[in-house]
Nucleic acid binder design. Structure first.
Lengths: 137, 137
DNA sequence: CTAAAAGTTTGAGTGCACTCCAAGTCAAGC
DNA sequence: GCTTGACTTGGAGTGCACTCAAACTTTTAG
């Protein structure tokens, strides 16, 4: 069930641009992809799986530099399992802290929105208390 | 209870660098700050509050460009309340989507970590099932 | 067979969010 | 008064993560 997808197909499938796929390969995030006789890239299922994982790392804001380290470790095979696990554990802790920070901030934004809502209500619905819309004499 | 903090004090208090505080002011994120007779910045409590809010926006990855728009609206006063609320609502939706995406990704990372753990256990503790550590004849 | 579309490479360019530099001014301690 | 450190400005520089350009080759449709 080998996929043999072209770069545009993989781009469409992953949401990355063909440019970015080549860039990732050049940067060592993706190991050299198999080629068709004419030299064009043919992505296998395993490549797609790995790219999917890279996207998880990217979604959680891992830097390209860190991903390069991780990809290199992966290339070293089973011997680097512990190191890779440690990297992920460290990263995951940062991610969880970051999620908490975003949640806190989101709550603050929500509060601000509520504040604006009550403000709008008192300005538009019933300009009585703060009646500063100059409808007087 | 006016604060009158120097730029270094505000930097220490907010975690932003003095460079960044000036940059934010130049960019229009922060309205021109009051000055001491000699020309040095003196931040008031209201400035700190606003900077705190900017940090919430930054934590939730609002771009500087968007913050500039928001800050400009704020400068227009109460008339822009509805527009500001709409901006925040739109932003908050994106933030919540982004949080969900990060949570999903974090779960995937957690699964990967577990996978590595079982892998390590079967490689180190009991090389029986997959005994590929060449201890044979 | 030909034309258009899609692929290849290296290297350069872009946009963002800072971050620093140089040259000068101001404030505080001795 | 003098030195040291904090502050000022405009503009230049940095690092990141792409993104594109140019020149070329290969594949595909008619």
């Amino acid at each position: 069930m080998e996929s043999h997808l072209s770069i545009t197909e993989v781009a469409a499938h992953t949401g990355l641009s063909a440019h970015t796929l080549r860039y990732y390969e050049r940067a060592g995030l993706i190991a050299p992809v198999a080629r068709a006789p004419g030299g064009q890239r043919r992505y296998a299922a395993a490549d797609l799986e790995w790219i999917g994982f890279l996207l998880r790392l990217r979604e959680t804001r891992m830097s390209i530099g860190q991903m390069q380290v991780f990809a290199r470790l992966r290339g070293e095979g089973a011997a680097s399992t512990a190191e890779r696990r440690q990297m992920l554990e460290t990263h995951l802790q940062e991610v969880e802290a970051s999620i908490k920070a975003m949640q806190d901030a989101a709550r603050a934004l929500q509060a601000k929105i509520e504040h604006y809502r009550t403000l709008e209500a008192s300005l538009q619905d019933t300009p009585k208390k703060t009646g500063r819309t100059k409808p007087c004499p």
